[in-house]
Design a protein around this nucleic acid. Structure first.
Lengths: 118, 118
DNA sequence: CCGCATCCGTTACGATACTG
DNA sequence: CAGTATCGTAACGGATGCGG
């Protein structure tokens, strides 16, 4: 359920960051939290990229175990619950903004439909 | 071989950036170019994370077609060749530095062996 | 209903062997 | 040395089931 141990490929900090967020979906979940204020499981499912339920559950579990996100009411039932960023997760904001800016500047020739955030 | 079309999941710039560099290896190749001055195929293979030959060839081909990197001597034979960043690829530097900094600050509790770059 | 877990076909990865 | 071919394995992705 997502909390299987991470395989750290090296001691390089960039490599280690990718061992955590270096897949197609994890950063999108963090984007939803940082930029769009997404909070619940079904709100994440509504994002335009259409993550599937098992992947979402797996990543939420992993991000929780690494303390990038946490549940707003740890004691409450799942249906009443929501997620929010921790300081650690929120600290990824400049990275995401940098990615978005780079994308908008350098990927336009290959993907004309890229829009600006906000 | 790597230049198959990219599937753009949405118009979101962050999502689009991940459609290009959102896997475990692509950013490491760019890291090698930006931070360690790696230039040749065999030098990439020597990185501590040990990318395999087919993945490396595939990613180099993809990054070339998207003009994040280019060959230093396009006309020369493969064995005499090397890669370098284009402006577009080099523009990812702040993103990589941000990732490294985040990692060093927030991943230490889970991976004590993280070292600093340089 | 909502938040997952499970099943299962398909795709991507990763190690190794091999070729020009 | 710079790749390509092959093939076993792991991850993904969609459908569905199920408990609270």
């Amino acid at each position: 359920m997502g909390d299987e141990k991470i395989h750290w490929r090296s001691g390089c900090p960039i490599s280690s960051a990718l061992d955590v967020v270096g897949d197609r979906w994890t950063i999108l979940i963090i984007r939803d939290l940082i930029i769009y204020g997404t909070r619940t499981y079904s709100e994440f499912l509504d994002s335009p990229e259409k993550i599937s339920t098992n992947i979402l559950a797996d990543r939420l579990s992993l991000l929780t175990s690494l303390k990038l996100i946490e549940r707003t009411q740890p004691e409450a039932a799942a249906r009443n619950n929501a997620f929010r960023l921790t300081k650690s997760g929120a600290a990824l904001r400049p990275v995401l903004l940098g990615l978005g800016k780079w994308s908008h500047t350098h990927l336009k020739p290959f993907h004309a439909d890229i829009v600006k955030i906000h």
